[in-house]
Structures are given as structure tokens and as C-alpha cells.
Nucleic acid binder design. Structure first.
Lengths: 223, 223
DNA sequence: TTTTGTGAACTAGTTCACAGCT
DNA sequence: AGCTGTGAACTAGTTCACAAAA
């Protein structure tokens, strides 16, 4: 059938975007295990997903499968990396060189998929000039705008106290950043055109506490 | 499929559970600012939520509001803490004393809302016996089961490499744990009756990369 | 055969809009 | 007047089921 690469205008949901990333990880596992092709059903069974959903998510971006066969692991992997924008190095700057910021800077999962942690920023003079254990340098916040532009940073990760997060988000937006991953608690306001993703650790724990408090729970998953 | 929980016959979604936690944080802010009552509309405007949704979420659990007035901040806060199971100390054990585990152990947001990080577990003998900067002791994994029971741990947080996560999850379940917050990448299988919540850092970043790659945006979102 | 890709059906989640209480 | 609580309407997301392709 005809090519159905999105002609701008249509939005892909957050949920779909997250699943694409999950599929890619599954394919990496399969590829590493030497598996050449995989059907949506096998993929679904092995990673507890729904086969129709996998097909639908993928079909949104093209016809990657072969009827009667399934998907070629390597080929689908390549497509997914392209769709997720991982065909080039994605540059990340982390703001906040506290425990969390330092941990994120050295998180091995980021480098693995082609992210480059270009710098860690902090306003505290005591931290500036030092490096994370993994070797990411800590830079003064006053250099933020300049470095974001010079190093063409794509994504800013916020790991600062809630009281500072809106200011830093504003600074990031002013520096031309269009994607922010926020680990600070509380609500951030960003202008349209900037994609904000919140990872709220307290909400995650409290949500578990809620289910514990009510006794009854299902089995898995998803965040 | 989304997980639901019984509320006298009704079921509450994961999404609602997360929002309750968000509402509680908003109320803390308002209370700290000396605000006595708040309407769903004011709450919604101030924190960019939807007023009807706030009312509906709260109405699941009782009639906390007063028509013509709104909600009494202190009272609603108390109710929410009860609903979220935060009226008693919730005990948390973290497995994995790497960068991330250590950062989570000292994360101030957890203590603030009444969580107690009882211990950090690791299999590496070199780490055992030491403490996090914040003073959480690192215990040998062989003590895991015993301590989980002795300290009546409620929630286990997984911050171990993907290769170890299923084994640790199994150990947690075997020790009677019914709620797991998983920071390890990959898919975990837990039996029914155990609540699993995944925070996948790579998926979060890749999802942002995806939106950057296709120039889409939208402003906010909740995780 | 097997398995995709996809409209249709279904399910879940959100927002509207208003009755009814203060 | 103001505001909650809630059915009804709407929107988003998932799963079903099958025609078409290899």
C-alpha cells in the first residue's frame, strides 16, 4: 500500500512514543540474541504487550512488516532509531549537580542509546570546575546559554530544587531548547512548542502507597 | 490495560492515583501560603489542571467540598494523606547502591512526605557497611529478606542493572513485598497482587527525542 | 499456511453542563 | 450569588477480527 509517513499536522500520542522506545529495546535484546525476524505476536508474548497495538504503532510510520513472516529485527531496529531521532547524537545538558543530577550524568543507559551528556550545570561555585565520577564537567550556570548554543544541546534535564526549576526552565526556553525532562517536583509552565516531560519521584512512590493502602492491586505496570 | 483498585465497588485508575499525589502537593503549597479554602477552579487555574477532573477525582473518595465555598485546604490535605496511605510512615528499601540508588536514598522529597528509607541493599561487598551521604546504611543483599520482614518494608525501589532486576524483584516478592518501584530498564514480571511501577529513564529521554525529531510539541504532560 | 495492516467495536479517560446545596 | 458533585457527551486509546499479502 501507499507510503504513510506522516504529513505534519497529526499528533502521535505520548503513549505511542514511549512504546516505540520500548519496542526498540526489545529489538536490541532480540538482535543481541541473534534473532533475525519476529512477529508481533512473539514480541507481544515475550514482553507482555498487545500484538495489535504493536502493529498499529508501527504501521503508523510505514509498512515495516512482511505478511506471513513478521518483522526483520535489524531493519525494524534501524527504522525505530530513525523515527526516535537516534540516528544522530542527541545532546543533553543536565542542570543541577546534586546527587540526582550527578547520577543522571553518569547513567549508562543514556550513552548506550546514543545520548551525549554534554555538561552538568550548577550555580554553586563550589561545584563548578569539578567533574562527575564518569567525567562530565560541572559548569557555572552563567555559561548555560552560551554552551547550549555552542554545543547545540537538544534536551535539557532539570534536576534542581523545585524553587529553582521554573527559572531554569525559562532560561532553557530562552536559549532555544525545545525539549525538557523535568525531575523537579511541582508544576512547570513552558510555552507552546516546547515539549516538557515530568518524572516525579514523589508522585511515583505516593501512587504505590495509594495502591498499598487500598489493599487490592492488579499485577503490572506502566508509568 | 490499566490497573484499577476497588473503592467500595468502584475502581480508580493509575492516572487518578498520580493526580491525587499532585493535588496533595498543590495543597501543601497553598497551606504554606496560608490559604484556608480553595475552589476546584482556582486550584485548576493555578496548577494547570481541569476543574471538573479535580472534583471528579476527589468525589470518588467522599464529599470533601462545600458548595458555594470550595475545599478547606487543611481538611482536604488530611483526607488526601489518608487516601494515599501517608497517615503512617511508609517504609522503603532501595536495592542497588550505585549512583542512582544513592541519589534516591538521599532524595529529600521522599522524607518530606513521610517516607522512610530504611536501607540500601547491594551485593557488592565493597559497598556494604558504608553509608550514603545522607546516612542511609548499605546492607548486604543476603540480609534482604530478613530486614524486609524485620523492618516491615512496604515498598522496594529497584536501582540495579537490568540483568539483575528480575532476580531482585523475585526476591522482593518472595519476602512479601507488594509494591515495587522499578528504575531498571526492561520488562519485569511480577505475580498478580504485586503492584509494579516503572520509571524508565531511557524511555523518557527517547520519547523527547522522538518529539524533537518530528517537530511536534504541545506544551505539558504528566508522568 | 502465517502474519501484517486496518476499519470497526469497544473501553477508558476527560470535559461539559447543570441540578442542587450553601 | 458561588461552587460542588455528577450524569451525559465527548475524546482518546486499545483490542478485535478479518481481508489481503507472502
Amino acid at each position: 500500500m501507499r507510503n504513510k509517513v506522516r504529513t505534519g499536522g497529526e499528533q502521535v500520542s505520548e503513549l505511542t512514543a514511549g512504546r516505540l522506545s520500548v519496542y526498540l529495546r526489545c529489538l536490541n535484546t532480540l538482535d543481541a540474541a541473534g534473532v533475525k525476524t519476529v512477529s508481533s505476536r512473539t514480541l507481544a508474548e515475550q514482553f507482555h504487550l498487545n500484538a495489535a497495538q504493536i502493529r498499529k504503532d508501527l504501521a503508523y510510520f510505514g509498512e515495516f512488516g512482511v505478511r506471513g513472516v513478521g518483522y526483520y529485527v535489524r531493519e525494524l531496529k534501524r527504522h525505530l532509531r530513525l523515527i526516535l531521532g537516534l540516528d544522530r547524537t542527541v545532546r543533553v545538558a543536565i542542570v543541577g549537580a546534586g546527587n540526582l543530577g550527578l547520577a543522571l550524568a553518569d547513567y549508562p543507559g543514556f550513552r548506550q542509546e546514543g545520548f551525549e551528556i554534554a555538561a552538568l550545570f550548577d550555580a554553586e561555585q563550589e561545584k563548578v570546575g569539578r567533574k562527575s565520577r564518569g567525567g562530565v564537567r560541572i559548569v557555572d550556570m552563567s555559561e548555560f546559554r552560551k554552551l547550549v548554543k555552542r554545543d547545540s544541546i537538544d534536551i535539557v534535564v532539570l534536576a534542581v530544587p523545585a524553587s529553582a526549576s521554573q527559572d531554569v526552565a525559562n532560561a532553557a526556553v530562552a536559549a532555544g531548547i525545545r525539549a525538557i525532562l523535568n525531575f523537579s517536583p511541582g508544576t512547570l509552565k513552558v510555552p507552546p512548542g516546547v515539549k516538557l516531560k515530568n518524572v516525579d519521584l514523589t508522585v511515583s512512590l505516593e501512587s504505590l502507597s495509594f495502591f498499598l493502602a487500598r489493599g487490592e492491586s492488579g499485577d503490572d505496570e506502566e508509568a
